[in-house]
Design a protein around this nucleic acid. Structure first.
Length: 986
RNA sequence: GCCCCGGUAGCCCAAUCGGCAGAGGCAACCGACUCAAAAUCGGUCCAGUGUGGGUUCGAGUCCCACCCGGGGCACCA
């Protein structure tokens, strides 16, 4: 637990011969802290009371006050343990929670563990030890380190995502999603349209003929089409509608990790976010979640929650909603007649600028576009040499280009971004607004995965299209002009506002309209002529949900003899992970694009083959061998904190409404959710988007009443640390480096360079909280972390500066307790007015700062008041008691100890936070600054209530002012009574 | 390239509606205590707010342009 070094240091410090016996030393701090931590646990001091059920407050108390639910993004318990950067957010939430509790709220704060995941699995692979053992051992270490920080958590509510009882409900939620489809027309309780409904309701409506059967011809009147399908066909129709579904489509295959990945887990340059391995697009059959059905709600409901604008915009950006129109173009073959290839007779494009349709001078389809499955045999008249890529026929040209582009990895595509390549397909398309023939190209700057995989190219209004037009000698027509026209030498695309020109035909005219008017007019024309319609598309793709790893939740699904999925009944949950001969995923050469995923769960044949009675007698099934991604467990853990022992529900509806419902307390918003959720910004579009999605499904299914999981989000900054490199560029242990900014830095006598970066083994700059507990105590560590700067800013760790926080607590201690005798030295004498003013000023300020989540400035005010008390000959109890209470949220152990030494029974955790008396906030006199032309020339001591006129007269009579005016007249006098007068000379 | 956040003393950071640039901490220096040192206590020093313009009686704060640092997005039609 303690490193020998630290133990020796502490022993040496505490046995210093002439150290006063009762000084607040690290050893004393440690003794006090451990004692109070035991006491809190024994008394259940931080037990939050549920309004119903077994979870009561301390001593069996019922719930009182406003429910206030505060949370940290729960940690993944890595083998390395915590470093000093990790607890920053945890301490911050603890400070807020302790403050809210003293303000009378019923505070729920606990912490669980996100315990499935890659590192434990990789460690298990190396050591052969089961990942569960590794993970549970790490959790023990984390719990010890967190407890030692004095966090006021309700331990009864803690759990890990790997606990079978939790896995059971994670699988249950999966099955709810599996058992749902999205009805885009259904009305919702919150007034919107579109919600998840049960599959059984879809089946009933199809059977009754209330809706057409997707993918089958006929109007299904009276359910005729549905009734005509085989049971297997019906199941296929239903399965295709589920919110959790399996389909075969291009996915991100990462051979280096041996698993497929969600789009959110792949970086912009085509690599895995974890491990940085190349990712390849492969057509594979995988589980997905229909998050796209929720795209609009996930964007729109951002308005209802108090989140950093940065995170909101990252989510909006990721979902990528854009509105525009789909337009259908007929295509012509080389002989000038409608293309004989059926699939290619019409091409639909998506555009956000339907107003520029008259400027479309060519069309581009993605290389994977089905139009290219058949192309004309010969180049049509008018084909330019630059268009063919030197090929004799369109067939050769398109085949060559398709081959070239499919061979490109995502990394190569990224590197080539901006470079325009492509080839003419031989197809011609007819522009529906004017009948013009335009050539159809294929180019990889158009992506099959977005919109329709085809665009109308308007080089006059789009920079990408312009670049392509330049490279392939295609004409440019500008259809929008800004006021006053474009400059004569203008080149490139004009993408700005303006009025429409050159957009008339015998069919319609947009000339003279503004861009928004023209968009609306064009969409109306497209719709009335049946050649297009207004539409919205999204960048967001469905969430790829299966992984070929061992250490995750198994899918609660089996496959029948027809290879169709069947849900495991609730009573058979959880589906536990099987033992397998080898935990390692089958990984491959990271560059091996042709490899195939292979799930470790498949290695246990006895587990995979299972005989179950699922209603129609015992039958043999094959288990699903995928596991869920790491995000599954973190999608709903906040709900489970409300009662992790509940065996009846994932979450009790009454508890959900009490802790999370809309407006469950005065600061809760219309969407409800967790009152304060603190964590790093790196989860902006992963965890936070997935959790919102699950929550909305649960809302639709009536499991929760809140619209959003997290009502308020706060991103804390990171603590980084200096690291040092020697002359060869090797990192040296930062703890052993000597020197400072002025003298330079040395390690073992040799000069080293200072760098700044993440705390970690590789930079040799790890400082553990355990080191801080030993050398200073948890309270000092907490005060230091909280006083380093505003919570949302990243800042450098500096162990040498921690002593400042220690001095503050030592002075506080000395203001109450004699270092020589250990006796309490406060007096019951009435404080003088100056001291009362200082106290009430501090109370008012600390409250403001705490409410604004600015512990750094709150601590500064505490230090100021404490320093004032240090200067007095005796310290009045009436002042130091409120000071102790105000210090309690940041330094709870020393505060409890002093509070108890001052004769109070029990913990101060529920003592009311001090309230300032306004009578002491007004000053007898204030200093008024007199400026002449903005420069300070005099100061006046005046009554706070002085009138503007009196103040003006007093200021003008002031000798220094007269001198500064130097005989000049006065033009104006600005009076801001009582603080400022500014005289403007003539 | 586009978008967001930041730049104040040697260092970390304060500064409400535009109103005296400094709350707090570190470091440095001086003094007290000490045989001495450490610790402790008291005190001192230090910037005109990244740069250049503008608005204003008055700008760290508002506006414009730029520089530097950090983050996000990046062929999304």
């Amino acid at each position: 637990m303690t490193t020998p070094d630290a133990a020796e240091r502490t022993a040496a410090a505490s046995s210093a011969p002439d150290e006063p016996r009762f000084r607040y030393t690290p050893a004393l701090a440690q003794e006090i802290e451990l004692r109070w931590q035991d006491r809190w646990e024994e008394l259940g001091t931080f037990h939050a009371a549920n309004p119903t059920g077994d979870l009561k407050g301390p001593g069996g108390a019922d719930a009182t006050g406003d429910p206030y639910f505060i949370m940290d993004m729960f940690p993944y318990p890595s083998g390395a343990g915590l470093h000093v950067g990790h607890p920053l957010g945890f301490i911050a939430t603890d400070v807020v929670g302790r403050f809210r509790r003293m303000c009378g709220d019923n505070v729920l704060h606990t912490m669980g563990f996100d315990a499935f995941g890659l590192p434990a699995e990789q460690y298990a692979v190396q050591t052969g030890e089961h990942p569960r053992l590794v993970t549970e051992r790490n959790i023990v270490t984390y719990k010890r380190q967190l407890r030692r920080a004095g966090l006021a958590h309700d331990q009864r509510r803690s759990f890990a995502t790997i606990d079978p009882e939790y896995v059971r409900w994670t699988q249950w939620i999966f099955l709810q999603i599996f058992d749902s489809w999205y009805d885009a027309e259904a009305a919702r309780p919150d007034g919107g349209r579109g919600r998840a409904r049960r599959i059984a309701e879809l089946e009933a409506e199809l059977a009754a003929g209330a809706r057409p059967v997707p993918g089958h011809e006929g109007d299904n009147a009276g359910g005729a089409v549905w009734a005509g399908l085989s049971r297997e066909e019906q199941r296929d129709v239903l399965d295709a509608q589920r919110l959790a579904y399996v389909d075969s489509s291009p996915v991100n295959w990462c051979p280096g990790l041996g698993t497929v990945l969600a789009n959110e887990e792949v970086t912009a340059d085509g690599r895995s976010e974890r491990g940085n391995f190349p990712v390849f697009t492969r057509n594979l059959r995988q589980w997905k979640m229909r998050i796209t059905a929720y795209a609009d709600r996930l964007i729109d409901d951002l308005e209802l929650i108090d989140w950093p604008e940065k995170v909101k915009s990252m989510q909006r950006n990721w979902i990528g909603r854009s509105t525009g129109a789909k337009v259908r173009f007929h295509t012509l073959g080389a002989d000038g007649t409608t293309d004989p290839a059926g699939a290619g007779s019409q091409v639909e494009v998506f555009t956000t600028r339907p107003d520029t349709l008259f400027g479309a001078t060519f069309m581009v389809v993605a290389p994977e576009h089905p139009l290219l499955d058949e192309v004309p045999a010969a180049w049509p008249d008018g084909t330019r040499n630059t268009w063919t890529g030197g090929n004799a026929t369109p067939i050769e040209a398109v085949a060559a280009y398709r081959k070239e582009s499919s061979a490109k990895s995502a990394v190569e595509r990224q590197a080539d971004a901006g470079k325009k390549t492509g080839v003419f397909t031989g197809h011609l398309a007819v522009n529906p607004v004017n009948g013009a023939y335009i050539p159809v190209f294929t180019a990889d700057y158009v992506l099959m995965g977005y919109g329709t995989g085809a665009i109308m190219a308007v080089p006059g209004g789009d920079e990408r299209d312009f670049a392509f037009a330049e490279a392939y000698e295609l004409p440019v027509i500008r259809t929008v002009e800004p006021e006053g026209g474009l400059p004569a030498d203008f080149t490139g695309a004009y993408t700005g506002d303006g009025s429409v020109v050159a957009s008339s035909s015998d069919r319609l005219s947009l000339d003279g309209l503004s861009v928004p008017e023209a968009k609306a007019a064009m969409i109306a024309w497209l719709e009335s002529n049946g050649v297009g319609e207004g539409t919205t598309t999204y960048r967001l793709r469905d969430w790829l949900f299966s992984r070929q790893r061992y250490w995750g939740e198994p899918f609660p699904v089996v496959w029948d003899e027809d290879d169709r999925p069947v849900a495991i009944p609730d009573a058979m949950l959880p589906v536990d992970l099987p033992d397998v001969p080898d935990y390692a995923p089958r990984t491959f050469e990271p560059e091996d694009a042709s490899s195939e995923p292979e799930a470790p769960l498949g290695r246990n044949e006895d587990w995979v083959k299972v005989t179950l009675d699922l209603g129609d007698g015992p039958k043999q099934y094959r288990r699903d061998t995928n596991t869920m991604p790491n995000w599954a467990g973190s999608c709903w853990y906040y709900l489970r904190y409300l009662d992790p022992a509940d065996t009846e529900h994932a979450v009790d509806p009454a508890l959900e409404e009490y802790w999370l419902g809309p407006r469950h307390n005065p600061t809760s918003g219309p969407a409800g959710g967790v009152d304060l959720y603190v964590g790093g910004v790196e989860h902006a579009v992963l965890h936070l988007l997935y959790a919102r999605f699950w929550h909305k499904v649960l809302y639709d299914l009536g499991v929760v009443t809140s619209l959003e999981p997290f009502g308020r989000l706060f991103n804390q900054g990171y603590i980084q640390a200096y690291a040092f490199t020697d002359s060869r560029g090797q990192y040296v242990p930062a703890a052993e480096v000597e020197g400072d900014e002025q003298t330079g830095w040395t390690w073992r006598g040799q000069p080293v360079n200072r760098e700044y970066g993440k705390i970690g083994k590789s930079l040799k700059n790890v400082v553990s909280p355990d080191d801080m507990y030993e050398a200073y105590g948890a309270d000092t560590f907490r005060v230091y972390e909280m006083s380093m700067g505003p919570l949302d800013l990243s800042r450098p760790w500096d162990t040498r500066a921690v002593v400042g926080s220690q001095r503050f607590l030592q002075r506080l201690w000395r203001n109450v307790v004699s270092e020589e005798t250990g006796e309490v030295t406060v007096t019951d004498d009435a404080p003088d007015t100056t001291t009362l003013r200082a106290l009430h000023r501090a109370i008012a300020d600390v409250r403001t700062e705490m409410e604004g989540m600015r512990p750094n400035t709150a601590i500064a005010k505490l230090i100021t008041l404490n320093n004032h008390l240090t200067g007095l000959s005796s310290v009045p109890r009436a002042v130091v008691e409120p000071l102790i209470l105000m210090t309690a949220p940041v330094a709870p152990h020393i505060a409890e100890e002093l509070w108890s030494r001052l004769g109070h029974e029990g913990s101060l955790a529920y003592e009311p936070f001090p309230v300032a008396d306004p009578a002491y906030l007004v000053e007898d006199t204030v200093t008024c600054v007199v400026q002449v032309q903005g420069k300070v020339r005099a100061r006046l001591e005046v009554a706070p209530a002085i009138s503007e006129d009196d103040l003006r007269e007093t200021a003008l009579a002031e000798p220094n002012v007269v001198k500064a005016l130097d005989g000049r007249g006065v033009r104006t006098v600005i009076v801001r009574a009582p603080k400022l007068v500014n005289i403007v000379p003539a």
